[in-house]
């Protein structure tokens, strides 16, 4: 379980997380913890989750992401999931995954625009 597998970066008033191609359960749980700590520490508007490199999204990953999005909303922020690959979108839909309160965007740039950040 690599603690530094996923890093949470603050850019202006947003947290940016880049999800690796094949995230394990431990890293996904750590991601949630780091995001909530980051929200508190940096007082940002929200979270952009870049999953453009992510090759597998299963029900565990989707559940933690949906939960995290809900927690970010409760803290007063927004979550945008950016860059889902077409093959992942097809698979996630057939599997029946839901992403809860999270918004989506084609790219990180669009996601930042959705949250209302200008860099």
């Amino acid at each position: 379980m690599a603690d530094d597998n996923i890093s949470v970066i603050k850019i202006h008033d947003v947290l940016l997380v880049t999800v690796p191609p094949d995230p394990d359960d431990g890293s996904v749980n750590i991601l949630q913890y780091k995001v909530l700590k980051g929200m508190e520490r940096h007082r940002v508007k929200g979270l952009v989750l870049d999953i453009s490199a992510c090759q597998t999204v299963d029900s565990f990953f989707a559940r933690v992401i949906a939960e995290t999005a809900q927690m970010v909303v409760l803290m007063g922020g927004q979550t945008v999931i950016a860059g889902m690959q077409p093959s992942v979108a097809i698979t996630a839909t057939q599997l029946g995954l839901k992403i809860g309160n999270a918004l989506t965007a084609l790219t990180v740039e669009h996601a930042l625009h959705k949250i209302g950040t200008t860099i």
């Binding site: 090759q55 299963d58 029900s59 690959q85 093959s87 992942v88 097809i90 698979t91």
Partner: peptide
């Protein structure tokens, strides 16, 4: 195909879990 690989790997992930 890439989509079928993703489907198979995702099913394997669910069933292994």
């Amino acid at each position: 195909s890439l989509t079928d690989v993703t489907r198979i790997v995702t099913a394997a992930s669910e069933l292994a879990r």
